[in-house]
């Protein structure tokens, strides 16, 4: 069983953290992962930086730009992760844009993921139809889950299509927004979470975009299986560095 599915079957409210690989420093990747696991994070999205991240707001954009300046590449990331399974056992997902994966070679990329122990991929700009036609077999061969996104604008028919193509969880984007929008969730979002939860999808739902503290984490997970924090975590890293990780995670989990 894939680590992601095993984690989802624990039936707790999962806290997942996104960070950009190569930020703040090129070689911080392993230590960040170890600290996140030690502090009780359930899953991690490792961001592969890209020059043109269409779905990201200023915070994640800036971390990607810095990571690329630091010299991060796909090759280096896999090298950093080669022994990660000796010290980190929570599910690990790589999140990135499709072009760097395409240049690395999709099969080669998946093979490397399997070798280092990555459990799934989130590639927001690889559309469902393309994935199914060209890449689903390759992902399967290497035991990788492909995680799809839905948004408040996604029609029910499309949600059902995505649900049937997914094995793992569905990444539920909280609002019509790029990452890092930090206003609190209103009734619009809460209704949306509740509505989607009531569709009885076969996949669990994990909410991302706009979660930045204990309160929004609570709201996001009331009707769903978990939430992903990205921009708020990156912002904390820019301010406090790796020393701030423990305090940050505890602040989300308190209540």
């Amino acid at each position: 069983m894939n680590k992601i599915n095993r984690k989802l079957s624990e039936n707790k409210k999962l806290l997942s953290i996104y960070f950009t690989a190569g930020y703040p420093k090129l070689d911080d990747t392993v230590e960040i992962l170890q600290q996140l696991e030690k502090n009780g994070v359930d899953m991690v999205e490792i961001g592969l930086p890209f020059s043109d991240p269409l779905a990201d707001g200023p915070t994640i954009q800036a971390s990607g730009t810095q990571a690329l300046k630091n010299g991060m590449t796909t090759e280096i990331l896999f090298h950093q992760l080669k022994d990660i399974r000796k010290t980190v056992s929570i599910p690990l997902v790589i999140m990135g844009y499709f072009n760097p994966v395409l240049q690395f070679g999709v099969e080669n990329f998946c093979k490397k993921c399997a070798e280092v122990g990555i459990d799934g991929l989130i590639l927001p700009d690889l559309p469902l139809a393309e994935f199914q036609e060209h890449y689903a077999e390759i992902f399967k061969k290497y035991g990788l889950l492909n995680i799809f996104l839905i948004t408040p604008q996604t029609s029910e028919a499309r949600i059902r299509e995505i649900d049937s193509a997914s094995e793992g969880f569905i990444y539920m984007v909280s609002s019509a927004s790029v990452t890092g929008n930090s206003s609190d969730f209103g009734s619009e979002q809460t209704n949306y979470f509740q509505n989607i939860a009531s569709l009885s999808l076969k996949n669990k739902l994990i909410v991302g975009f706009g979660i930045n503290n204990a309160e929004t984490f609570q709201q996001a997970t009331k009707y769903t299986s978990g939430a992903i924090i990205g921009s708020a975590f990156i912002k904390m890293l820019s301010e406090n560095g790796l020393n701030g990780i423990s305090t940050f995670i505890k602040s989300i989990r308190k209540v």
Binding site: D125, L149, Q153
Partner: peptide, 12 residues
């Protein structure tokens, strides 16, 4: 060609 867009843009 094609449409390699994040799901957020799919409806538009």
């Amino acid at each position: 060609g094609g449409a390699y867009i994040p799901e957020m843009l799919y409806p538009n």
